[in-house]
């Protein structure tokens, strides 16, 4: 990387929920620090009544926290967040604004880019600065190709980064200075959040999980998904699925990993009874390690599995869960 002196200022939009900063924020702060070199890393925290974040955000690499604490930001809204960021950028835009690829981040970034006339790139899995340009790589064409996108100099850049591709940086003793900023008196927020209904899940969110246990048609029915839940609980993993269980109504749509569902890149992806259709591979082939359990030795998933187990998942999964529990009890 030819970052050299680094970017003068990089902003990271803090993703938070229920008072807790989401993991993607730490990942982005690490990347921001790398791109800024000796330049400034600023965490932008929008919300209402959010707890003092200076310590957490500083430890992960922020020099400064810009805090906009306003009742109108109690819920994420496209227009509220866009107005806040556009207002802050009008006082002095950063070279680069990093936003995590969450439902809200994907909703916000293009709108903000259009408002600011900034260049935007989404789904980034690498980010570098070369010859004054921001160079990002991103999966395209159902992950059958990697695109290199160049955002030229002389404009603000907004990059939306995939979760779990940049490492969480080691903590430092840094404490960020907090600067409070106000929202303009007149901002227009036309949408109204009626409610946010949590989907009851025992496990971590899919896009943030280190380990994912995922089931396909080979599970045969919804009654067998508890086999995955049990293994996931033992491993501290999240549970996902390929498309057929969703289409068959065994699990809700938010389980789905693949072209028409979520893109994940965990440390380990355990595919159970998943054949490996291209549309599924599009969502998970960026996993660091893939373990596949399938009865069919010719299942395409075995062509990319680091460990392929040809066998009956109904015999293997309960034993695997017990073995993981034993191992955890010892270690």
């Amino acid at each position: 990387m030819a970052a050299g002196a680094g970017l003068s200022e990089v902003w990271v939009l803090v993703a938070h929920e229920g008072g807790a900063v989401r993991k993607i924020t730490s990942e982005l702060l690490g990347k921001a620090r790398a791109l800024a070199g000796g330049g400034r890393v600023v965490a932008v925290l929008l919300g209402a009544g959010v707890p003092d974040p200076a310590r957490t955000l500083g430890r992960r690499g922020a020099d400064e926290v810009i805090l906009v604490d306003d009742a109108r930001l109690a819920h994420y809204t496209t227009e509220g967040y866009a107005a806040a960021l556009a207002h802050l950028a009008a006082e002095g835009p950063p070279a680069l604004l990093l936003i995590g690829s969450t439902a809200q981040g994907r909703d916000l970034a293009p709108r903000l880019a259009a408002r600011l006339g900034a260049a935007v790139v989404t789904d980034c899995q690498s980010l570098d600065v070369a010859d004054g340009a921001l160079v990002a790589t991103r999966p395209m064409y159902t992950r059958k190709a990697i695109g290199t996108v160049r955002l030229g100099p002389g404009q603000m850049w907004i990059a939306v980064a995939l979760p779990a591709v940049f490492p969480v940086p080691a903590e430092t003793e840094r404490t960020a200075e907090v600067r409070s900023a106000a929202l303009p008196a007149e901002i227009r927020i036309r949408t109204r959040v009626v409610e946010t209904r949590a989907i009851e899940r025992e496990t971590v969110p899919l896009t943030e999980a280190e380990v994912i246990v995922s089931g396909g048609r080979g599970l045969r029915g919804p009654e067998n998904f508890p086999l995955l839940d049990a293994l996931a609980r033992a491993l501290g993993a999240a549970v996902g699925s390929s498309r057929p269980p969703v289409d068959s109504g065994w699990v809700p749509h938010d389980y789905e990993i693949g072209q028409t569902g979520k893109t994940v890149s965990p440390q380990v992806y355990i595919a159970c009874g998943i054949s490996g259709a291209p549309q599924h591979l599009a969502g998970m082939s960026g996993s660091k390690f893939i373990v596949a359990i399938n009865k069919d030795p010719n299942a395409p998933i075995f062509q990319l599995a680091d460990l392929g187990v040809v066998g009956d998942l109904f015999e293997i999964l309960p034993r695997l869960t017990e073995a993981v529990k034993r191992r955890k009890a010892v270690g």
Binding site: G117, A119, A145, T148, F302, L304
Partner: peptide, 18 residues
């Protein structure tokens, strides 16, 4: 403002242990 410079094939994954 953003230009697709090139496309490359994703790093190939190969089958590991079976």
């Amino acid at each position: 403002g953003a230009v697709l410079e090139r496309l490359t094939s994703p790093p190939g994954r190969t089958a590991g242990v079976q």
